[in-house]
Amino acid sequence: MDKLLQILGEAGIPFAYDHFAEGESPDPPFICYLLPGTNHFGADGRVYYKINEVHIELYTDSKDLEIEHQLEAVLDKHGIFYDRSEVWIDSEKLYEVLYSFEIEA
């Protein structure tokens, strides 16, 4: 978890786990990150290598390639292989760019 927090800090974008408290959300861009699951390696009935699934949700109010490249540069610097997808959230009037990857727990 420390490595993930270091990576997020280096990106220079405000972030919170899952969501910001009501009334405390910063103006976009901002990040919400989640640890929705695991993909542990095990044998002999025990976990030998712990792996967390990570979702980094980057929110912007307009398409912002510069901020996306800023975040991707930090992920690349740390050798993280990620998948990326994007969606417009009409009810929030925000773009969400989702970065999914796995990291050692």
Rank of each mutant, 00 (worst) to 15 (best):
P26G: 07
N39T: 13
E92P: 08
G42F: 01
D83M: 08
I80S: 00
T60D: 05
A73Q: 13
S91Y: 02
D90K: 11
G23Q: 08
E102H: 05
E96M: 15
F41D: 12
N39F: 11
Y59F: 05
L65M: 10
L34D: 10
A21N: 12
Y99V: 00
I13F: 07
D83F: 08
L94Q: 00
E22I: 01
L34E: 11
F101C: 03
P29L: 07
A43D: 07
L94N: 02
H78I: 10
G79I: 01
R46Y: 11
I56A: 15
P36N: 04
A43P: 09
Y95N: 04
E53M: 10
E68W: 13
G79T: 01
D61S: 07
N39Q: 14
D61Y: 08
S25H: 15
D90N: 09
C32Y: 14
S91M: 04
N39E: 15
I56R: 15
Y48N: 13
F20G: 01
L71P: 01
E102M: 05
E68S: 13
D64C: 06
T60S: 02
I67S: 04
I67A: 10
E86C: 10
H40S: 10
H19I: 09
I80D: 01
D44P: 00
E22R: 08
S25E: 15
E86Y: 12
R46K: 14
F81S: 14
A16F: 02
P29E: 00
Y82M: 10
H78K: 11
S85K: 12
E92F: 09
E53L: 10
E68V: 11
I31K: 00
A43I: 06
V87M: 07
A16G: 02
G45I: 03
I80V: 03
P36H: 15
C32T: 07
I13L: 05
S25N: 15
S25W: 15
E72C: 06
I13S: 05
L71N: 00
H78Y: 06
E68M: 13
I13M: 11
F81R: 13
I31W: 00
G12P: 06
Q70D: 06
A11Q: 11
F81M: 12
L71I: 08
V74T: 14
L94S: 01
E72T: 09
L94M: 04
E24I: 04
I51K: 07
L71K: 03
Y59M: 03
D18Y: 02
V87K: 09
A11R: 10
A11M: 13
I103E: 03
Q70K: 04
A11K: 13
D27Q: 03
R84F: 06
D18Q: 04
E104W: 03
Y99I: 05
V97T: 08
T38Q: 05
H19L: 12
